[in-house]
Each structure stands twice: as C-alpha cells, then as structure tokens.
Computed example of a mutant assay.
Amino acid sequence: MNKEYKIPQATTKRLPLYYRFLQNFAQEGKKRISSQELSDAMKIDPATIRRDFSYFGALGKKGYGYDVQHLLSFFSQTLDQDEATNVALIGVGNLGNAFLKYNFQKNHNTRIVVAFDSKAPYEGTDISGIPVFHPDRLEEMYEEYGAELAILTVSSRSAQTMTDRLAKMNAKGILNFTPIRLTVPDSMKLMNIDLSVELQALIYLVRNSES
C-alpha cells in the first residue's frame, strides 16, 4: 500500500519534529536513544512514538532502542532534506511579512522564492530579499521561479479564487492560513492552519484545567 494513504496525517505532521529532536540528540553526542528518552524530550507519549515509527518498519531493536544516526538518515531521506523545495507566498500582510523575514532558512528544506500581493507593483518589488509581484503575474512568475507549493495568507474573499488558479497551474500543495475551507482537486495536497481555532482550543484547555 502506498505510504501516502497508510500513514495518518497526525503522524505525518510529527515527522519534522522527530527529525529536529534527533538532530539535537546527535549534536549532544548521543549514539542511541529509547522511545522514552525521545518522549521525555518531545513531551509525546512513547506509545505514540513507537506507533508512528512502526509505519516505516523496523527502525529500532528491542532492548537496544534506536540508533540516532540511522534515524537521522532515514528521516532526512523521508522528508527530502537534501533537496530544497521552492515555495510561493501569496498575500504579504502582517503574517506574510513574518514569513518573508523568517523564510525557513535554518534547518529546513523549504525556501520562499517568490511572493505575490495585490499592493505590489506589476513590475515587482523586493521585501526581505524576496521578489514580490502583483497577483496578475502569478502564473508567469510561479513557473519562472520554480515554485512547487504555495502558502496562502490572503483575505477570505480571494482565497478560493487564488486556489483555483493554483490548481490550474498544477501546484502540488497549499498551506492555507485563511479560515476558508478550500476546495482543491485530488491531485493537490492541502493543509489548513486556522490560528483562531487553535487559540480557541488552547483557551478551552486552559479554562477546563483550572476547574
């Protein structure tokens, strides 16, 4: 069975975290770790870690634990860490500007190579070293800069329109920061991050833990 359909999305979201913490262990000189040690560092139940790892076969040995360098190599290949992925940012408001300044530079295999904003001039401008164009040039510049994925931080009213344009261009995926539930073709991957929903969930947890 194709891993894409076998591995739950919750597990997929944890893979970059595993890779980050394994890098930390390697920098500390650790040769091997147990699921409990990884659990203590990540604050994730060890049974969850073992279940996540089981989707990829035998990554460790009973009574030995996990070889840190082996896991690093495995997750590096799984996450394609050796090959950078070009990303387009669509919408350069407050959140978009923060993305441009951060731009995933350290310990990430993604980079924002081009951005689009309705206030940008048609001929383009530069923000934090990234070229920013008017959305009228989306199709042209998305291809020219070799973008594969898009981060969507536009207004709710234009979110689906921009998504439809990306779909026609055969964009591979969208990281959606708008509150709109987007409709995408089966060939396109979509991940939604609704900050207001996450905040409300946090408030609920805080208030219910106080009782």
Rank of each mutant, 00 (worst) to 15 (best):
M162E: 08
R181E: 15
R20G: 06
Q81G: 14
S54I: 02
I7G: 03
I127K: 13
S118F: 08
Q23P: 02
L195S: 07
F25A: 06
Y19H: 14
P8D: 05
V92L: 08
Y142P: 04
F53E: 11
Q9D: 08
T161K: 11
L17A: 06
D82Y: 15
S34A: 05
Y122H: 11
L182G: 02
G60Q: 01
N208S: 11
D40H: 14
R51N: 13
N208K: 13
K172V: 03
G29C: 07
D164T: 04
T110N: 05
N24E: 10
R165A: 02
P135Y: 04
A120G: 09
Q105R: 10
H134S: 05
A150W: 00
I33E: 01
S39I: 04
L72I: 14
V92S: 12
V68N: 00
S209A: 13
S39W: 11
P131H: 07
L17P: 08
Q27P: 00
N103L: 00
E148G: 05
M42R: 14
I193K: 01
S187N: 11
D52L: 07
P121Q: 08
R181G: 07
E83Y: 13
Y55Q: 07
A120K: 00
I7H: 01
S187R: 13
L22T: 12
I151H: 02
T85W: 06
P135K: 03
L195A: 13
S187K: 12
K119G: 08
D82S: 15
L138G: 02
S196N: 11
Y142K: 01
S155W: 06
R137T: 13
D52R: 06
I44P: 08
K119V: 09
A167N: 10
A26F: 10
M188K: 09
E144F: 00
L202V: 12
V184D: 01
L138C: 03
L79R: 15
A147T: 04
T48F: 10
I127H: 10
S209V: 09
R181Q: 15
Q9E: 10
A115H: 07
S34N: 10
V68C: 03
A159Q: 04
N94Q: 12
S73V: 12
G91H: 14
R50M: 09
R165D: 02
Y142M: 03
N97Y: 10
L72M: 12
Y19C: 05
D186F: 09
Q81I: 15
L100K: 07
T48A: 13
L199K: 11
H108L: 03
D45T: 11
Q69A: 14
R137G: 05
L166F: 06
T11E: 08
M188S: 05
D164G: 12
F53N: 05
S39E: 04
Q36E: 14
L149D: 06
I7W: 05
E143M: 04
A84L: 15
N170V: 00
K172E: 04
I203D: 11
Y55M: 02
E140Y: 00
G124R: 09
I7P: 03
K30N: 06
F116T: 04
Q69I: 06
